[in-house]
Design a protein around this nucleic acid. Structure first.
Length: 633
DNA sequence: GGTACATGCGCC
DNA sequence: AAATGGCGCATGTACC
């Protein structure tokens, strides 16, 4: 079976842009759910496009009609190298409905162009604001007015909508030419290629949907609701009819009625909100000291109730609605052009449930881990596979810092959390008192990489650990400091992988502390790991699995989640390994001109339900092809 | 009745 | 004056 990559997933992708043979496209659609192609009740109303070769417009065409009438557009797309559009994911999902195979298409998304050119600087990326930044003027007033007023697209007069649509095409074309110059000048073409390749893969992945296991959802929901009802009765007896969801009411009850003392933080200051209100978050509540039976009982019941309440309102109610009213399938949205680090973000596609006033949705990147097991494949012949980058951010930090100590530990497979545990024990951290290194290991995980993200610690033992970490991995900490110094000098800096990050006006205090240190230290690591490497791996995986019975349906920062036919499991593991390691090295070398040295690792789990496998296959693969394998249980 | 903000909390 | 980074969603509160 062909598992090769298409030519444009590599340097040829950039060549294609420079050859200037493209279709520039805009659809006007009916506007349920912002015109999403996933809504089957939406339709294309009008398509306008131009065909451009060698930088010259050679054709201008439009079609008033639905997705069944777009063959001339598909033919034009097939005759050029790429498609230009603003927010191309929208057009791509419509093109898929028109019959285009997304695996064959390359795009230049002018919205993503703005994202890449602006780095971590937040500006509005919509077409109108972007046009104004490029001095291309605003939109045709009449068409724009109708759209803004929310008029049904199909009711807008032809003579208004058609010029409006053509104008968007022309704006995108002009912005594209300008962005192409700017991206070359700032040496950002490789990043732009990855954003655009990722965009097409995401357009496809969003169409797949997430499948919930009906029985598991109903049972979990029932259990939680029953337990909550019991707790609620108990709580009402104790506190009357106050609303426990209100931190104001709960705070008054805890600190005024029940007489809890306001806990003190590590600086011996009372734990209050910035505005001086009572804090009722998990951390504060966990610090409360009961001095009588009433306090003790209330606290126990409240903590459990609150935990369940959050799970039920944010997830279980939604999941139950999905299995009851939507055949167990729901969809998420992946947002590019959202984060400063150039990670993806995700949001939920909202659903309406019977008897509920408000629509609700669930995003795919913050599902409680305990509920992963509720996700399954649509069919008994399929399994769920998850492949994640092993210790990805630490390995990337070692790489960017040229840190020999960290690299040696990664190569040796050293147990870093045990080291943290022993440092914490020696420094007398209260959570580690009386524990052996082994017993403290689990709790140490939360501390291990905090200094890499700029954490200096609060308790003396944590501060001692932060010092230990920075000294031990002086390659990482020294490199982070040099990034900070560059930012002080000129307000921005270029990461080793070519990304530009901006913190204008950053100053150094007399003590030597540099503003924004934590962010400056963190962005390049998070950005390279989860904004470049994982998207590269995702694109490679998606293309290579094209002709296999393997479908990616989620990605969470350092992982790819797929449904896998039971006969494809071995290929799935092999492909995961290749795409998260070798393909990354090759792409970085050929497109980024970046020669990665630290071995990357990948962990693969396959089971009937997401995350349910007790065993994990873990590989490390070196850029020269050497590899190691370990089965973790 | 709507919007904006604050708070809290899930994930990596 | 802030010293762990990055997000999105639900709820309550303040305000118009």
């Amino acid at each position: 079976m062909d598992t090769n990559l298409p030519s444009f997933v590599g340097p040829q992708g950039i060549e294609n842009y420079l050859n200037l043979s493209f279709v520039s496209l805009d659809f006007e659609t009916t506007n349920l759910e912002k015109g999403s192609a996933l809504n089957k009740d939406n339709d294309i109303v009008l398509a306008c496009w131009t065909v451009n070769r060698n930088g010259q417009e050679v054709k201008r065409r439009h079609i008033w009609g639905d997705e069944l009438t777009m063959q001339p557009l598909l033919d034009d797309i097939a005759s050029t190298d790429f498609v230009v559009a603003h927010n191309a994911k929208f057009e791509l999902q419509w093109l898929e409905r028109c019959g285009l195979d997304l695996y064959d298409v390359q795009v230049w998304d002018t919205m993503l162009g703005e994202w890449v050119l602006h780095g971590n600087q937040k500006v509005p990326f919509n077409l109108e604001a972007t046009s104004q930044r490029y001095n291309l003027g605003g939109k045709t007033p009449l068409g724009a007015m109708c759209i803004k007023m929310g008029m049904a697209t199909q009711d807008i007069p032809v003579s208004w909508l058609q010029p409006y649509c053509y104008q968007d095409v022309d704006l995108a074309t002009n912005i594209f030419y300008d962005q192409l110059d700017r991206c070359q000048e700032k040496k950002l073409m490789h990043l732009m290629l990855v954003r655009n390749l990722t965009c097409v893969a995401l357009a496809y992945i969003e169409l797949q949907g997430c499948q919930l296991d009906r029985e598991k959802v109903i049972n979990a929901h029932q259990e939680a609701v029953t337990e909550m009802a019991e707790l609620e009765q108990k709580l009402i007896v104790m506190c009357g009819s106050i609303n426990l969801g209100s931190s104001k009411q709960l705070g008054e009850f805890l600190f005024e009625k029940l007489g809890f003392k306001i806990p003190l933080d590590h600086k011996k200051k009372p734990m209050l909100t910035a505005k001086g209100a009572y804090k009722t978050d998990k951390l504060t509540i966990s610090k409360l000291k009961s001095t009588n039976k009433e306090q003790e009982e209330f606290l126990a019941a409240y903590i459990r109730f609150n935990q369940l309440d959050a799970l039920v309102t944010k997830n279980l109610d939604f999941f139950k609605g999905v299995v009851s009213e939507y055949d167990g399938v729901f969809y998420g949205v992946f947002n590019q052009a959202q984060t400063g680090t150039h990670r993806l973000s995700s949001s939920g596609r909202k659903l309406k449930f019977a008897g509920k006033k408000k629509e609700s949705g669930a995003q795919l990147q913050n599902l409680p881990r305990q509920y992963k097991g509720m996700f399954t494949a649509h069919d008994d012949d399929y399994l769920i596979g998850e492949a994640d980058g092993a210790q990805l951010e630490f390995r990337v930090a070692a790489e960017l810092g040229g840190d020999k100590v960290a690299e040696a530990e990664i190569v040796a497979g050293a147990d870093i959390h045990s080291v943290t545990s022993s440092v914490m024990i020696e420094a007398g951290h209260p959570d580690f008192i009386g524990k052996s290194v082994k017993e403290g290991r689990q709790g140490a995980k939360a501390h291990t990489f905090a200094p890499m993200y700029g954490g200096n610690g609060k308790l003396p033992a944590e501060q001692a650990y932060a010092e230990f970490f920075k000294k031990k991995y002086h390659g990482i900490s020294g490199t982070q400091r040099s990034w900070c110094e560059q930012v002080v000098t000129r307000g921005w800096f270029t990461t080793p992988y070519g990304m530009r990050f901006y913190w204008p006006g950053t100053k150094m205090s007399r003590s030597g502390y540099i503003e924004n240190t934590t962010a400056i230290s963190n962005y390049p690591i998070q950005g390279f790991a989860t904004g470049e490497i994982i998207p590269i791996a995702l694109v490679a995986f998606w293309h290579r699995a094209r002709h296999l019975d393997i479908t990616v349906w989620n990605t969470i920062h350092d992982s790819l989640v797929s449904r896998v036919h039971k006969d494809c499991v071995d290929q799935y593991k092999e492909l995961s390994k290749q795409c998260l390691t070798t393909d990354v090295y090759n792409f970085l070398r050929d497109v980024y001109n970046y020669h990665f040295r630290v071995p990357l690792g990948v962990g693969v789990k396959v089971a009937k339900n997401w995350g349910a496998s007790k065993e994990e296959h873990v590989w490390s693969v070196w850029p020269d092809g050497k590899e190691t394998y370990e089965l973790k249980e």
